[in-house]
Simulated scan of single mutants.
Amino acid sequence: MTLNSLGLDTNKTKDIANDLNHLLANFQIYYQNLRGIHWNIKGKRFFDLHVKFEELYTDANTKVDEVAERILTLGETPLHTFQDYIGKAQVPVGKNISEDEKSVNLIVDSLTELLKIERIILNKTDEANDEGTNSMMSDFITEQEKTVWMMKAWLGETV
């Protein structure tokens, strides 16, 4: 076993960085979805949703940067082209969505995919003793679970 300067197994960190790149690709699609629904939302709930979507895309943009920087911290290179993102992402792509419920459902569906990826990373980082990435995933999961709950409540649904 070879340890890097962080004291982590280099084989495990390479695998974790690969998973983080997968997460990064999905976050970039999620971010673009949020920008699109922010720009295109229409209807009686415009003012509330327009502001909420801006809050969410600002947060997603911050998380994109955090994930990319963590990949670099682990000694790997973050993906940085839309071609790479599209090839790796499972988050649904929302195109020309302007209706409130469709917009909120897109957020819920996207976060559901992100949470699946983050839980995989959380388990791997726990096994690799990678507290930095583990803590990041734990924080992301906690925030996103709350957002899913709130969005589902807005839709009149339960988690």
Rank of each mutant, 00 (worst) to 15 (best):
F27A: 04
Q28T: 12
Q28E: 12
Q28W: 07
I29R: 00
Y30E: 01
Y31V: 03
Y31G: 03
Q32R: 07
N33P: 03
L34E: 05
G36F: 06
G36L: 08
G36N: 15
I37R: 01
I41R: 00
K42V: 15
K42Q: 15
K42G: 04
K42D: 13
G43M: 07
K44T: 14
R45N: 14
R45I: 06
F46C: 05
F47Q: 08
D48W: 05
V51N: 09
K52W: 00
K52Q: 15
K52L: 08
F53Y: 15
E54H: 11
E54V: 06
E55C: 06
E55G: 10
L56P: 00
T58P: 04
D59H: 07
A60R: 05
A60F: 02
T62Y: 06
D65F: 05
D65C: 07
E66M: 12
E66L: 13
E66H: 11
E66W: 05
V67S: 04
A68P: 03
E69T: 09
R70P: 01
L72C: 10
L72K: 13
L74T: 05
G75N: 06
G75Q: 05
G75R: 02
E76Q: 14
T77G: 02
T77A: 07
P78Y: 04
P78T: 07
P78Q: 07
L79I: 14
H80M: 10
H80K: 12
F82G: 04
F82E: 05
F82Y: 15
Q83Y: 09
I86P: 03
I86L: 13
I86K: 04
G87F: 02
G87Y: 04
G87D: 14
K88F: 07
K88A: 12
K88V: 04
A89S: 13
Q90D: 12
V91D: 00
P92V: 02
P92F: 00
V93D: 10
G94W: 01
K95P: 02
I97L: 15
I97G: 01
I97D: 00
S98P: 00
E99H: 10
E99M: 08
E101D: 15
S103C: 12
V104T: 12
L106Q: 01
V108D: 03
V108S: 03
D109Y: 06
S110N: 04
S110I: 02
L111M: 12
E113N: 12
E113I: 15
E113L: 08
L114K: 00
L114H: 01
K116M: 05
K116T: 14
I117S: 08
R119D: 13
I120G: 08
I120H: 08
I121G: 06
L122W: 09
N123W: 10
D126N: 13
A128P: 08
A128S: 14
N129K: 14
N129G: 06
D130P: 08
G132A: 13
T133I: 06
T133C: 07
N134W: 12
N134S: 12
M136Y: 10
S138C: 08
S138I: 08
F140Y: 14
I141G: 11
E143R: 10
E145S: 09
E145M: 10
K146P: 03
T147G: 01
V148H: 00
W149N: 00
